[in-house]
Design a protein around this nucleic acid. Sequence first.
RNA 1: GCGCCUGUAGCUCAGCUGGAUAGAGUACCUGACUACGAAUCAGGCGGUCGCACGUUCGAAUCGUGCCAGGCGCGCCA
Length: 561
Amino acid sequence: MQESLQNLILSCLSDLIENGTIELDTLPKVQIERTRDPAHGDFATNIALALAKQAKTNPRQLAQNIIDQLADSPLVAKVEIAGPGFINFFLSKGASTNVIRDILEQGANFGRNDLGQGESVQVEFVSANPTGPLHVGHGRGAAVGDSLCRLLSTCGYKVTREFYYNDAGAQIDNLALSVQSRCQGLTPEDAGWPADGYRGDYIIDVANAYMAQESVQSEDRTVTALGDINDIQAIRDFAVAYLRREQDLDLKAFGVQFDIYFLESSLYESQAVEATVNQLIENNFTYEEDGALWLKTELFGDDKNRVMRKREGGYTYFVPDVAYHLNKWERGFKTVINEQGADHHSTVTRVRAGLQALGANIPEGWPEYVLHQMVLVMRNGQEVKLSKRAGSYVTLRDLIDEVGRDATRYFLVARAPSSQITFDIDLALAQNNENPVYYIQYAHARICSMLQKLEVGEQETALSSDQAIFEALSEPQEDALIKELDKFAGTVKQAGEQRAPHMIANYLKDLAAAFHTFYNAHKVLVDEPALRQARVALCLATKQVLRSGLDLLGVGAPESM
RNA sequence: GCGCCUGUAGCUCAGCUGGAUAGAGUACCUGACUACGAAUCAGGCGGUCGCACGUUCGAAUCGUGCCAGGCGCGCCA
């Protein structure tokens, strides 16, 4: 629709240039947008305002010239000049109800686009270290990352979901020591407890399972505990597997799955880390100082150079990170998006610097990052900081258990990742329009409930409605709902381009509102056959878009509540 | 001190590739079930878009400088 109008204006402009009414060197980009106020028509363009100066005339005059030149189109019922020189388009009935037909025909495919053209995209998210249960921040990462994947897939990308986990660093040693201490019966208050040991109660569970020689199966492996209190390596392997499984269960409960679990240790085993270091040395971007090996990240926009290899030996964390990202590049992903907490934003510059220094022809801004800010959890107006199990933070599992999967996902994905959010448990539990999740789901359930009252075969008839039947829809609430439905495809595309799944959440709230307004104002199942059929078709289309939109968020669309 | 993010209604937040009178929910005040689900709807109240300057026909949106908050600034990850 938008494109047709754009072309209409473009051809009109070239006519004006040809007949000498205006002088322009090149045809501009025509911006045409949906109006907010129905009094301004359906679409409006600011083209006359934008060109007035160049064309050496005043905007309203130019707008009039354009309108005079406009060819008749079956799409457009009326054109007006408004305000300082906007051109407002009022669509014909047939043009605006087209979307209902499209939705009914395309079903779940309605709203898809080919932005990605089948290109492969890798999205890395969550990537929690296997040292404890997932916390709310990981939950936000999971909600945003997974929704982003769904969105990109709808935008025609081939998406790979990846979870990277550190099973090789100092904190894993620390984890093993903590479990060992618990096996010995020590508590965090006792002398001899490791200095930075993990204090949460879940460590006791790990220790008990280890001593009982349990087996754990996680997504990518099975480990059986030896039960030997002195075998720190065995404790370590078991603890990692145990906590990975815990995280898997949390993610499963959250409706999030990954295609690949990538182990940091594999980068050492495959010599990828060593190869990366050698390449950096060979490229002359390193130097030795104070017994350590440094990378000249300053040359690539960092504010200081960074240590790669510590004095006591061993690499700092960003070295395997660079090797990991080289690996992603070599796997052929031209687009890689890392969704992670903003508290790790300093790695962005470092990883990109390392990749540039490798001289592997990787673009400067690669990979992309979506960074999410912190989540503050509130209950009864008080900040909630502790969970019994984890000791020092609120776990994702706590939230899912308390407010449910759908509400948790919705709240964590509904805000722009860049804004710090307050997760209000009382609000998420509320079952009214304080709570947008139920508001949207209720719209869907309401339609389903109404559809159950249809005569046999009536739904099929409505689904195959001829365009002409929609002439019966003339109420302002119907127009508003149709307009809202028509925004879906554009919203999906924009959200995909901007890596912004929260736009879908906002859209759904508007769509649900338009539906509820319509539903309260007019009865669907009226006696008059044409109107009845048209309204049923409108409801079916709304149901489809609600379902598709909720699916992009990983939130269910219940038929009854 | 430096870097990244944020500052919009009492509260929680949209809007930010510049456009018409800045939106939604909530809170507070009124109304609407003999009704296809009231988990809903209609109306009212509520704003110096942190402050200042600049660019522009036009700025919440872009630029600069301040102010405030969060997060980083480790030979931790």
